[in-house]
């Protein structure tokens, strides 16, 4: 059986909120290392990969592999009933028909309990090869969100060019063009404001802004976001969570004109 207790419902609320517009029905794969999710969007150009390590829960118990097939719209409806600071416990039997969610208020004696019916989801699993990326950029997640939103006002696509000079986000649209360039930057007092560019070779790729703006819904989960780029491979956008847990998005590049 599964029993996983989160100190704050907020974490799961934010994760689900960040991915629910990209993917609808997902298997939450539970085993003794934690709860993982991998799902592609309908057009097969974006993939979300979530890992909530067992250390992110206290306690965490999962005796055998359990796949919880959950519709994220349904999960969102139930999670709305949880306060951000509630303690959230997920429970399921070994061959479950439902997943049970319990929300406990730390301040009052209120306990709420919901069951969500599970779905049988036949989901393809993709193996993502280990990649040595040509460029890795760590930057404030709010800055990345702002750049994507600002450029989306002009264009559907953004080119991300990474060189010794820094990283340049540029777009061209009907009304004109725009770009934002960031250089490496260290803020000793506020490390969350750091921009770190790790470059082995220059790289330039074009991506759909609609998807990037969607990924940025995860910004509240982490002060920093990591962008990993190599020519002709999908972009990795990673939001690191506590205890080595993470929320990652992959996006296929746009090719040709």
């Amino acid at each position: 059986m599964l029993e996983a207790r989160l100190e704050q419902a907020n974490l799961l609320k934010k994760v689900v909120d960040a991915i629910k517009d990209l993917v609808q029905d997902c298997n939450f794969d539970c085993n003794d290392s934690g709860i993982a999710l991998q799902a592609m969007d309908n057009s097969h150009v974006a993939l979300v990969s979530m890992m909530l390590k067992s250390e992110s829960f206290s306690p965490f118990r999962c005796d055998r592999n359990i796949a919880l097939g959950i519709n994220l719209t349904s999960l969102t409806k139930v999670l709305r009933a949880a306060q951000n600071e509630d303690i959230l416990t997920l429970k399921a039997e070994d061959a479950p028909d439902v997943v049970n969610l319990v929300f406990e208020s730390a301040e009052s004696d209120r306990i709420s309990e919901y069951d969500i019916k599970l779905m049988d989801i036949d989901q393809e699993h993709l193996g993502i090869p280990e990649t040595e990326y040509a460029a890795t950029i760590s930057m404030p997640s709010a800055e990345f969100q702002r750049i994507c939103r600002d450029l989306m006002a002009l264009s559907e696509s953004v080119s991300i060019e990474c060189s010794k000079e820094g990283v340049k986000f540029a777009c061209q649209g009907d009304i004109g063009s725009g770009s934002v360039t960031l250089r490496s930057h260290t803020n000793v007092d506020k490390p969350e404001m750091n921009v770190e560019i790790d470059l082995t070779e220059p790289v330039s790729l074009t991506f759909s802004l609609k998807y990037l703006v969607g990924f940025c819904k995860a910004s509240s989960l982490s002060g920093q976001v990591k962008l990993c780029l190599s020519n002709e491979v999908p972009l990795l956008v990673e939001y690191a969570l506590a205890n080595n847990s993470y929320l990652r998005f992959y996006l296929a590049p746009k090719i040709g004109d």
Partner: peptide, 14 residues
């Protein structure tokens, strides 16, 4: 118009 290959071109089905 630019196109996007789907992710099956990059990742392996397991």
């Amino acid at each position: 118009a630019p196109f996007q290959k789907d992710l099956y071109n990059y990742f392996i089905k397991t």
